[in-house]
Nucleic acid binder design. Structure first.
Length: 575
RNA sequence: CGGGGUGUAGCGCAGUUUGGUUAGCGCGCCUGCCUUGGGAGCAGGAAGUCGGAGGUUCGAAUCCUCUCACCCCGACCA
């Protein structure tokens, strides 16, 4: 360790705000070069290589073949697919000495499609699944969270080519299973979740999400483990329980009530002394330039991803204040469906609402006892609200719960989007020319390393899962002036290394406290402490990072003790 | 891109409002002593274009103008 480039820091750099960045920098796993640019120091590279190895082994086992595509790609390919124009500024563009345009690859659909169209001509050569592990570049609008959203990062991307949908679905399932094995082997707690397939289409897509409080994505999952339903909040749908505590009655007629300055759901429900579920929240959206009213039950939020899907358009935005004023003849906060002359769509949450409270389209007034199909009508019911914890699972009926996660992988059925645009075709058994049907499958490698830290750390530092830890064991000779201790340390080092463990020897002449703190910070799973007990009765301590438990062992017995602990650590995988 | 903030030694900061000696402090680093079970102590030392450029002034880290970098909050995604 006196020779290793490991420079730990006691203090936290001021711009580090999440555990993976704080501990990543402090433990000298990474080093910052610029915004969204990080050096992988020796410790960090070891972790990344281990994740890569697991990925390689599992991908190869699945039948996929590894290759390596260039990072730099000519603009022509991006122009062919149309993404040169639509990808936006996130695509890092660059010119060579002849002023020819290139892009630094943020993903490689174009490049792989180009490759395959020139090499593969017949259905007999399909299916084909090709992958690479490579540096990607995305000129993020706002890089943040350190290695979690960097501009330059390592990614494993795979692309599969098929003659028909059935073959695609088969490979998709194989990739799904492969990803499950990969993240399990990485020692991570994760969930595959159903996700919005966005503009590209395709029936199904799954995101693999590492569970962590600091995660950016919100997941709804079924409390019943055997059911297994889990979906990203943008996509999740639950059955919404009817609101049973409604104090309003549909038998009563609609009534206009003065509600001075009461705009939000909270204010209005407090004023009427009712639960928020009694309110019909009315939001005006511009959907393909048509102002449209979207109704949800008071306690719910409109989900724009669902809105986009319901109207099959990406052009969805909340109407501005002026539009709201002119459509409702009222200030923002008093919109309601009664008497509106624009299209009105209601969320499923309102299906069971008997009578409700809603804006009167008049500043400072709300209607009470509003009843659908009596006082107003709608075009139709649609699913546009974000599911909430407590909604019931659409698969099994049990309750849904919420957690947060970090998206580290995605499996996706691309279809013919790229093959059609780039005229990538093969001959089928009838000699007909057909576009390849494609799938793509990504894993953020460096992000996975970051996610592991986010998921597994304590106040002292990182707690690496055994399978991706930079070293398995760290030996701490507590007094470098005791020749017996030093000899023992060196002997254990070479013996354990021979036994196949990756061992770090802290041979620095420092006080014990410093060594303990550094070992904890870096997060090595097992510490071997050689100190007083060695001088007294020739035993050493074996201490687990994850829970601090310690066992004494004689030198002779040490290999057995270590093997036991390692087996325990390896067995601790998430099911 | 919009809004907010920060740039002073490797790291964390003070000093800037009100211009004025040799720009400080803690951590880290180097030397020596001492210490050795959870980031010890003492003594000595090295280390700074005060983000950059221009300006005001007898004099600028400090005031003015421009510029660059970085961070945080909102629109992206592995």
């Amino acid at each position: 360790m006196t020779q290793a480039l490991i420079r730990t820091m006691k203090e936290t750099p001021s711009d580090a705000d999440i555990p993976s960045l704080i501990f990543g920098l402090r433990s000298s796993i990474i080093n910052k070069l610029g915004s969204g640019l990080y050096t992988l120091l020796p410790l960090g590279l070891k972790v990344v290589r281990k994740i890569e190895t697991i990925i390689r082994e599992e991908m190869d086992k699945s039948g996929a073949q590894e290759l390596l595509l260039p990072i730099l790609s000519p603009a022509e390919l991006w122009q062919e697919s149309g993404r040169w124009d639509i990808y936006g500024k996130e695509l890092m563009r660059i010119q060579d000495r002849h002023d020819r345009d290139f892009a630094l690859g943020p993903t490689h659909e174009e490049i792989i499609t180009h490759l395959v169209r020139s090499l593969v001509k017949s259905y007999k050569e399909l299916p084909l699944n090709l992958y690479q592990i490579q540096t990607k570049f995305r000129d993020e609008i706002r890089p943040r969270f350190g290695v979690m959203r960097a501009r330059e990062f390592v990614m494993k991307d795979a692309y599969s080519f098929h003659r028909n949908e059935e073959s695609l679905r088969e490979t998709y399932q194989v990739m799904f299973d492969t990803y499950t094995r990969i993240f399990k082997r990485c020692g991570l707690k994760f969930k595959p979740v159903l996700a919005d397939s966005g503009a590209i289409g395709g029936d199904v897509t799954h995101e693999f999400t590492v569970l962590a409080q600091t995660g950016e994505s919100v997941i709804l999952y079924c409390e019943d483990n055997s059911c297994g339903y889990a979906a990203s909040s943008e996509y999740a749908t639950g059955n919404i329980a009817p609101f049973t505590e409604n104090t309003l009655k549909s038998a009563d007629s609609m009534e206009k009530i003065h509600t001075p300055n009461l705009k939000t759901v909270d204010e209005v429900s407090a004023f009427f002394k009712v639960q928020p579920q009694t309110l019909i929240k009315t939001l005006l959206y511009k959907i393909n330039d048509t102002v449209t009213a979207v109704l949800v039950r008071g306690e719910r939020e409109v989900n724009e991803a669902k809105l986009q899907k319901a109207f099959t358009t990406p052009f969805v935005e909340l109407a501005d204040e002026k539009t709201v004023n002119s459509v409702t003849n009222a200030a923002v906060g008093f919109a309601g469906p009664v008497g509106l002359s624009i299209p009105v769509y209601a969320d499923f949450s309102l299906k069971t609402l008997d009578a409700g409270i809603t804006g009167a389209n008049e500043t400072n007034y709300h209607y009470k006892n509003v009843v659908l199909n009596r006082d107003f009508s709608i075009n139709s019911f649609i699913d546009v609200s974000t599911a909430l914890a407590g909604d019931s699972c659409i698969k099994c009926g049990k309750s849904l719960a919420v957690c947060r996660g970090i998206e580290v992988g995605q499996v996706f059925q691309l279809g013919t989007k790229y093959s059609k645009a780039m005229n990538a075709t093969f001959h089928d058994e009838n000699g007909e020319e057909k576009p390849f049907i494609m799938g793509c499958y990504g894993i953020g490698v460096t992000r996975t390393a970051g996610a592991a830290i986010e998921q597994s750390h304590d106040k002292d530092g990182i707690i690496w899962p055994y399978s991706i830890a930079p070293y398995h064991i760290i030996i701490l000779p507590l007094n470098m002036n005791e020749s017996g201790i030093v000899e023992c340390a060196e002997q254990l080092y070479s013996q354990l290394t021979q036994d196949g463990y990756e061992v770090l020897l802290d041979d620095r002449d420092l006080r014990p406290g410093v060594k303990f703190k550094d070992a904890d910070l870096i997060g090595i799973p097992i510490k071997i402490v050689i100190g007083k007990s060695f001088l007294n009765d020739k035993t050493v301590e074996v201490k687990k990072r994850i829970d601090g438990t310690t066992v004494q062992a004689t030198i002779d017995h040490l290999p057995v003790t270590i093997r036991q602990i390692v087996n325990e650590l390896k067995a601790d995988v998430y099911e």
